[in-house]
């Protein structure tokens, strides 16, 4: 029991550390904030006119951008973890009996908060350029809950990538596939406009169920079982990421 409490205490201290450091890493912070907004503007004003979705494009695309921006934040997290593993500080933490899970949980907490901040920014700019949600209060709450679940899962996965890569640069690169995942989904264009062979993947990959849920919840449309599928995906990703990072941490600190 005291071990669990001690672990929680360590994780809290580590989260404080990561949050403080994030706030001071201005370049990374700005780019992780500005990039998703820029992308949204690109999609809405440059590509949007050519894409037929049946609704106003900005309304169609905002949920997709929210997910895209979560994936962008992963690079900073992976690099932060990799940076820690490279320096002597990991030995100091371990010699203080701070467990790997607490160290990673600190990074994940900071990562989730950073991403939440950029999500709020994207949503605000989205509202300014014409996004018109019609969600109920419970719809907003459910959407926020789903988004947070996704952020936690993907942050932990990024942390695992940080352990996998031998250099911070490579760690940043590893997260590329996460930023790619929203494209072959219904985030930016309807799936039925894609080639048939891609439908199977696009329909069933994790990001699609998430985006369908967010879109439905924010626009107050029926969502079916999509939120449950999305939650299951998040739980699955989280489980794999925690297991993987635990194993990788052992290997890296042997």
């Amino acid at each position: 029991m005291s071990d669990v409490l001690g672990g929680l205490g360590h994780a809290t201290t580590m989260a404080g550390r990561s949050i403080r450091i994030s706030g001071r890493n201005l370049d990374a912070l700005i780019s992780s904030m500005v990039l998703p907004v820029m992308l949204m503007l690109v999609f809405v004003y440059l590509f949007g006119g050519a894409i037929e979705t049946g609704t106003d494009y900005v309304t169609y695309v905002v949920p997709g951008i929210l997910i895209l921006c979560a994936s962008f934040g992963g690079a900073t997290t992976a690099m932060g973890v990799s940076e820690d593993m490279k320096g002597g500080i990991i030995d100091r933490f371990r010699s203080l009996d701070v467990g790997g899970t607490s160290i990673l949980a600190g990074h994940v907490a900071a990562s989730t908060l950073r991403n939440l901040a950029s999500t709020v920014l994207v949503l605000t700019v989205g509202l300014l350029i014409g996004f018109q949600p019609s969600a109920t209060v419970s719809g907003w709450l459910a959407a926020a809950g789903l988004l947070i679940a996704f952020l936690v899962a993907i942050s932990w996965l990024s942390a695992a990538f940080g352990l996998l890569a031998r250099t911070p640069e490579a760690a940043g690169g590893f997260t590329f596939f996460m930023t790619f995942l929203p494209y072959p989904s219904s985030a930016f264009v309807p799936i039925d406009t894609m080639p048939t062979w891609l439908h199977g993947f696009a329909d069933h990959q994790p990001v699609t169920s998430l985006i369908e849920s967010l879109r439905g919840l924010l626009l107050d449309e029926p969502v079916g079982t999509a939120p449950w599928t999305a939650l299951t995906w998040c739980a699955g990703i989280l489980l794999v990421a925690v297991g993987l990072s635990g194993a990788l941490f052992k290997v890296r600190t042997r």
Binding site: R17, I21, G87
Partner: peptide, 14 residues
């Protein structure tokens, strides 16, 4: 115990 290793183990941004 305490360990002060070969590489300085402090956070630069703190």
């Amino acid at each position: 115990i305490s360990l002060t290793g070969q590489f300085v183990a402090i956070d630069e941004k703190q």
